[in-house]
C-alpha cells in the first residue's frame, strides 16, 4: 500500500471540500483523479504532500500518517509537477532538474549522471538543453523538464496536477505517450489530476471520478465506460459516445483473423484500436482491412461486423 485515505475531510471556509474520502492507492498504479472543476480532485492531490493540510481522518504514506513525517522530508520523497510548471527562471535546465537531489545532498557526479539520464528519458538531448534557461524552451519542453525535475530524486510517488493542461494537442499527446512509457518502464506510483476524459482513459490504470468532494465511482477505464454507476458518471464521460470511447480502449489484435479469399487492399497496424479501425473503414468505404505487423507484413484481416459485435 503506497497511500491510503481514511475518512479524510477537508473544510474550506465552513464548507466541506472533501467529505469522508476513503481510497487505497497501490504501488505501481497510475491513478487518475478525474472530475469537474471544484470537485476537489486537486485538493486530494495537494493533501498528499501536505501543500494542503487535511482537517480530520488520516492519510497514510507507506503505512504512516503523513503528519508524522518532517514536511520537507515527505515532500522530497514525492515528485511534483503542475500545469504552470514553475521552473526556476534563474537556473539552467540541468540545475532545475537537480533541485531535489541537491537538497538531498547527492554528490555532483551522481547529480550530473541523473540529470543526463532524465533528459534522455524525456527525449531531450542533454548536450543541447542542459545549459539552457527555461525561457529559451518551448512550452512542451518546459513541461518535459518539469516532469524530469519531479522524477529527479527517484521519488516513491509522482504527484501531477493537470501537468499537460496548457499544452497544444500535439504536444500534449506526445507527453502523454512519454509519461505512459515512463510509468511502464519505472513502475512508479503516479497520482494524476485531470478534467480531460480522454487523457484519463488513455493514461489511467484506475480512474477515481470525484464530484462535490466525494468519490462517485472508482474503477478501470473500461469498467467506468461499461458500467457507469449513475447518470452523473455517464454524462461526465460523454453519454453520446460512451461506445466509441470503449472502442478506443481495445486493441484490434483479438479480432484479427486469417485471410480467406482476396487480401483487402487497405492496411492498418496491429497496434491500432478498434476505434481507429472503424474510423478507417468509414473514411475508406470498406468493411475489411489487412492487419500488418511491425515490419509491414500482413498478419490477417479485421471485419467490421466482428468489431461491432463485442
Amino acid at each position: 500500500m503506497m497511500i491510503r485515505f481514511q475518512h479524510t475531510r477537508k473544510i474550506y471556509g465552513g464548507a466541506a471540500a472533501i467529505t469522508d474520502l476513503n481510497l487505497d492507492i497501490q504501488q505501481g498504479e497510475l491513478l487518475v483523479l478525474l472530475g469537474p472543476s471544484g470537485s476537489g480532485k486537486s485538493t486530494v492531490l495537494k493533501m498528499v504532500n501536505r501543500m494542503v493540510s487535511h482537517d480530520s481522518g488520516q492519510i497514510l504514506f507507506k503505512g504512516k500518517e503523513i503528519n508524522s513525517f518532517n514536511v520537507q522530508d515527505l515532500r522530497r520523497r514525492m515528485g511534483y509537477a503542475i500545469q504552470s510548471v514553475g521552473l526556476f527562471p534563474h537556473r539552467t535546465v540541468a540545475h532545475n532538474i537537480a533541485t531535489v537531489p541537491k537538497l538531498l545532498g547527492w554528490d555532483a557526479q551522481r547529480v550530473q549522471a541523473r540529470t543526463y539520464e532524465l533528459l534522455q528519458l524525456l527525449a531531450m538531448d542533454p548536450e543541447q538543453y542542459a545549459s539552457r534557461y527555461p525561457h529559451q524552451l518551448s512550452g512542451g519542453q518546459q513541461q518535459r523538464v518539469g516532469v524530469a525535475r519531479a522524477l529527479a530524486a527517484d521519488p516513491d510517488v509522482l504527484l501531477m496536477d493537470e501537468p499537460f493542461g496548457a499544452l497544444d494537442p500535439v504536444t500534449r499527446a506526445a507527453l502523454q505517450v512519454a509519461l505512459k512509457k515512463i510509468h511502464r518502464s519505472t513502475g512508479k506510483t503516479i497520482l494524476f489530476v485531470t478534467h480531460d476524459i480522454d487523457e484519463a482513459l488513455l493514461l489511467a490504470t484506475r480512474i477515481v471520478l470525484l464530484n462535490q468532494g466525494q468519490i462517485t465511482q472508482a474503477g478501470t477505464p473500461l469498467e467506468l465506460l461499461q458500467q457507469p454507476a449513475n447518470d452523473f458518471v455517464a454524462d461526465f464521460l460523454g453519454r453520446a459516445d460512451l461506445g466509441l470511447k470503449q472502442l478506443s480502449l481495445r486493441s484490434i489484435a483479438p479480432y484479427t483473423k486469417a485471410i480467406e479469399g482476396t487480401e483487402p487492399s487497405h492496411t492498418i497496424p496491429l497496434t491500432a484500436t478498434l476505434r481507429e479501425a472503424i474510423s478507417h473503414m468509414a473514411t475508406l468505404h470498406v468493411s475489411t482491412l489487412s492487419v500488418t505487423g511491425e515490419t509491414g507484413i500482413v498478419l490477417g484481416q479485421v471485419q467490421a461486423a466482428d468489431l461491432l459485435e463485442n
Binding site: M51, V71, L74, R75, R76
Partner: peptide, 9 residues
C-alpha cells in the same frame, strides 16, 4: 516558482 520550490521540499 515559489509554490514549486515549497512542494519540492
Amino acid at each position: 516558482a515559489i509554490n514549486a520550490a515549497r512542494a519540492m521540499g
